[in-house]
Amino acid sequence: MPAYDQTRARVEDYFDRTATKTWERLTSDAPVSRVRETVRAGRDRMRKLMLSRLPEDLRGARVLDAGCGAGPATIELAERGAQVVAVDISPQLIDIARTRLPKSLERQVVFHAGDMFDPELGQFDAIIAMDSLIYYTADDIGVHLAALEKRTSGPIVFTVAPRTPALMVMWYAGKAFPRSDRSPVMIPHAHPTLAKAAKAAGVRATLRPVDRVTSGFYISEAMEVRG
Rank of each mutant, 00 (worst) to 15 (best):
R10A: 05
F15E: 01
T18C: 09
A19G: 08
W23D: 02
E24P: 00
T27C: 13
T27K: 05
S28F: 01
D29G: 02
V35T: 13
R36P: 02
T38V: 01
T38W: 02
A41S: 15
D44Y: 09
R45F: 02
R45T: 07
M46S: 03
L49T: 09
M50T: 09
M50C: 15
S52Y: 10
S52M: 06
R53N: 11
L54R: 02
E56D: 15
E56I: 14
D57W: 13
G60R: 09
A61P: 08
A61C: 10
A66C: 10
A66G: 08
G67E: 01
G67L: 06
C68W: 01
A70V: 09
G71Q: 04
P72I: 11
A73E: 04
E76A: 15
L77T: 11
R80D: 08
Q83W: 04
V87S: 05
I89V: 13
I89K: 02
I89C: 07
I89L: 15
S90A: 14
P91K: 09
L93R: 05
I94C: 05
P102W: 14
K103C: 09
S104K: 14
L105G: 05
E106Y: 06
V110A: 07
H112R: 13
D115Q: 10
D115G: 06
F117W: 08
F117P: 04
L121C: 04
G122A: 11
G122H: 08
Q123P: 01
F124I: 14
F124G: 04
A126S: 08
I127V: 15
I127Y: 00
I127D: 06
I127P: 05
I128C: 11
A129R: 04
D131H: 08
S132V: 04
Y135Q: 05
T137M: 09
G142Q: 00
G142K: 00
H144I: 03
A147P: 00
L148S: 03
K150D: 15
